[in-house]
Amino acid sequence: MKSALIIRHVPYEGVAGYRQPIEEAGYLIDRIDVSDPAFSSLELREPDLLIMMGGPMGVYEQDQYPWIACQLRRLRHRLEAGRPTLGVCFGAQMMAAALGAEVYAGPHKEVGFHPIRLNAAGISSPLRHLEDVPVLHWHGDTFTMPDNVEPLGSSHLYEYQAFRRGPNILALQFHAEMGEDERFDAWIEEWPESVIEAGGDEASLRAAHDLHGPTAVAAGRKMIAEWVSQFAFNPSADSQWLARCE
Rank of each mutant, 00 (worst) to 15 (best):
R45E: 04
A98Y: 03
H114Q: 14
A176V: 11
P66C: 05
L157Q: 13
I68R: 01
F163Y: 01
K109D: 14
Q230Y: 00
R8F: 02
P84G: 04
L75G: 09
Q230T: 10
Y158M: 07
S35E: 13
V59E: 02
I22H: 07
P37A: 03
W227V: 08
Y65M: 02
H156D: 15
L49P: 10
P21R: 01
I123Y: 15
I7C: 02
E23K: 09
R74N: 11
H77W: 14
A16L: 06
Y60M: 02
E226F: 01
A216H: 01
R221V: 01
C89P: 03
P107R: 14
Q71F: 15
C89T: 04
G17W: 01
R78E: 09
R183N: 15
L86D: 06
V111E: 05
L50C: 09
A96D: 08
D210H: 05
I116A: 03
A203S: 08
G106P: 09
E177W: 00
P66G: 10
E190P: 06
A216S: 08
A81D: 10
A16K: 02
A207P: 05
L172N: 12
G179T: 05
P107E: 14
E180L: 15
Y158Q: 01
G220M: 00
A208C: 04
K222Q: 14
V59W: 04
H114F: 15
G58D: 02
R117P: 10
E150D: 11
T144P: 09
D210N: 14
R128Q: 08
P66T: 12
P115Y: 10
P151G: 06
F233C: 12
A232R: 15
E197M: 12
I6F: 01
L170A: 12
W241D: 02
E182P: 12
G112N: 01
P134Q: 13
A105Y: 14
M178S: 14
M223T: 11
L44W: 06
E246D: 13
S229P: 05
V195T: 03
Y158K: 04
P235N: 06
A208G: 13
Y60E: 07
R206F: 04
M1E: 15
I188C: 06
P37T: 05
G26C: 11
E226V: 05
A162Q: 00
L118E: 06
E189Q: 14
R165S: 11
G112D: 04
I169D: 08
G199W: 00
E190C: 12
V149K: 03
F174V: 07
L211S: 07
A121S: 09
